[in-house]
Design a protein around this nucleic acid. Structure first.
Lengths: 345, 345
DNA sequence: CTGTTAGCGCCTTCAA
DNA sequence: TTGAAGGCGCTAACAG
């Protein structure tokens, strides 16, 4: 049941009248090879377009130079942007990436985790999914703990209680605070919060920072002004709908991400509310959508490049058995656009 | 320089008092194993959370169950949407995907191609990049021809003269025709064409079908109405700018993709033109942007799911040495939204 | 049904 | 500087 033949170092060795070891040496440069032979080998490598079998190399060397990336949905600009940077950084360090979309499905996520380990990836970057659950099931936690015994894993913007993993996170809390400061500075005192999902930690954390900061600043907040039906544009539309007919509508809303902000803006405008005239809106993630969707959405940028760089550095450090700091916080910044303005009614 | 230990079938075998072959048998189910032993093995596998080394398996079996995907930029919704479907289809057939973003750089693209082959992927899906060049360099062509000697490759929406690869393409030509029919039906007779890049086949083909169909239908077209500065939102803005101050502005424009359409709409509106009132706009790719960007962009859908399914089926068929049709055309359809309307000035 | 053996393709001691 | 030999972890004959 063996399949295609393929040129090997043995074939090259034979034709070049040297030993396989010698071919290996010119291939890896691990030792000098004298000139008449060296050229013959090189010529044959070129002739056959010989590409060494990395699986065989990896088997011996016990390192695959592959990194796994597990995330919920590459379709979301936040993930596609971060993936691109992660891949770029990995490439620079000689790693190839295995991308795994769990499609929001925990069993696929687990299957991928096992698969990556079986495939001998040297490390894994984990985004979203179970590490974003405020209360993950015991099974999910156990799966992660097991995985960590096999391979270094770095969490991006997530955590799991009782799981001792290295984490890189963007400072979402300060992002929320900055947005509120901005709005307060514009004279807004009544502010709502839209999108996200209860039980997902990035939502839960934002909510708690939001409430805390509102209180701190003496701003006004009502239960009616918070709705969390998801992370999609549709969720933004739905959540915004609740506010439209309220007598005591907030004058501004914080949205969990740019998708939600866009949905909210669409819905507000559909019902005749001006954004930002009648209601100011902020996004989160600062994806290209925030830039281009009218009127331009003020949003919090994750510093994608720094985030990815730190993540890969940490992971590669762990692979090399170097001590790494347990948690790194990447500062965020607000990109101001036209979806917020002075409140002057 | 050997690294982490790791449990192997030998370890399991020893502790279970059986031979490694027996462990392998319970692992793969390739033969029956009697009960007392079988349970002991299973228990140990469970105890150690043993995961077989796929590289070793692959080395012997000469199949990695990995597919490579090479594309220019995962950030573009067209690519992220198609990748998601490709991955889903691959997963269903037991394959894991290696994603490679060439970042529009031909040498990275080539490096990835070599890398994938070295890593023994069983097949490659190739999108964009060199297979979209109307006149690729000899080097790029040679690189592809060499790669094809090593592994099956399926092109998606591309081709290379002199390179005998299997191709799956969406019927972009009929997409363009349908859009023009739609516009003509709405009474538009003067139509422009924005975005894309000369020398890139998907642009070149659309241009040629456009010109042909315009002529066929007796519609009016001027050199001034065609601009091709790229595939981005910015390109759309730039290209649209050229039309704004024209006395004989077209009443509708076809845009190369949704990004360009969005850029064009932004720009038109910025200069006080109503879309679709003063000028109708169409997109291409039918990404989620087309749905959500006001006023909703009429666009051509690639039938992503079918496209991905056919692609993976063909690739997997080739891997199994089954005959496959050389070229498959996936029908497109137009999703009508509000960016086009009756011309009535 | 089970153990022994050989080998997938490569790399690296160890001697020469 | 070079070759011979062994082994990375696994699977599939081949005997028993």
């Amino acid at each position: 049941m063996l399949k295609k033949d393929g040129v090997t170092i043995y074939r090259i060795a034979k034709e070049a009248n040297v030993s396989p070891a010698t071919v290996s040496r010119v291939l890896t440069g691990s030792a000098n090879v004298r000139e008449p032979a060296k050229s013959r080998v090189l010529a044959l490598i070129n002739k056959y377009n010989f590409k060494p079998n990395v699986m065989a190399q990896s088997l011996y060397l016990k390192q695959s130079k592959m990194l796994g990336i597990i995330l919920p949905d590459i379709d979301h600009p936040f993930y596609s942007m971060i993936v691109k940077e992660l891949e770029r950084q990995a490439l620079e360090k000689g790693y190839t990436c295995l991308l795994c979309n769990s499609m929001q499905n925990f069993s696929i996520e687990q299957a991928y985790l096992d698969n990556l380990i079986s495939r001998q990836v040297d490390g894994i970057v984990f985004l979203g999914g179970r590490i974003n659950q405020t209360h993950p099931t015991e099974e999910l936690r156990a799966g992660m703990i097991d995985a960590l015994k096999h391979v270094p894993i770095v969490f991006v913007n997530g955590k799991m209680e009782g799981v001792d993993a290295h984490t890189i996170r963007t400072d979402e809390a300060s992002g929320v605070r900055r947005l509120l400061e901005l709005l307060a500075h514009h004279g807004h005192r009544e502010i709502g919060l839209l999108g996200g999902e209860v039980g997902v930690s990035s939502t839960d954390e934002k909510v708690s920072v939001f409430l805390e900061t509102m209180k701190e600043k003496g701003l006004i907040f009502k239960e009616d002004w918070i709705h969390s039906s998801g992370y999609s544009i549709e969720a933004g539309e739905k959540d915004a709908t609740h506010l439209i007919h309220l007598d005591d509508r907030p004058t501004a809303v914080l949205c969990m991400n740019d998708f939600v902000a866009i949905g909210a803006i669409k819905r507000f405008r559909k019902f005749g509310l001006k954004v930002p005239g009648d209601i100011s809106v902020t996004g989160f993630d600062d994806t290209y959508l925030a830039e281009h969707f009218p009127p331009g959405v003020t949003s919090v940028n994750h510093n994608y490049q720094k985030l990815a760089k730190k993540t890969i550095e940490t992971l590669v450090g762990l692979i090399a058995h170097e001590e790494q700091q347990k948690e790194a916080i990447i500062p965020t910044y607000v990109t101001v656009r036209n979806s917020c303005e002075e409140w002057q009614h």
